[in-house]
Amino acid sequence: MNIKLNGEQRVIAANQISINELLAYENVSQPEMVSVQKNGEFVNRSDFESILVIDGDEVDFLYFMGGGQNSESKMSK
């Protein structure tokens, strides 16, 4: 099936795949750091197993990002 993942076309060797399976398939090492949208709708983490991605779906992995002000000085204190 063909899906759009993070804005790019992907061919997945399956007819359907759960969000959890897609995260594993894409080698996302820390799925807890990812928020997922399917076809523009937010997906609850508790539904990652049950919600299925099918042909034509658009999925976005949105990553937590901190950054900005540094933490080094706080760590060393």
Partner: peptide, 29 residues
């Protein structure tokens, strides 16, 4: 919170000090 409902698990969070950051990116953002 509409995008990220709750903070990520505390032991998983990389900060700039652990993960690094290209300085000019801070300027871009």
């Amino acid at each position: 919170r509409c995008i990220f409902p709750t903070p990520p698990p505390k032991d998983l969070v990389p900060t700039c000090s652990q993960a690094g950051v290209l300085g000019s990116i801070a300027g871009m953002l």
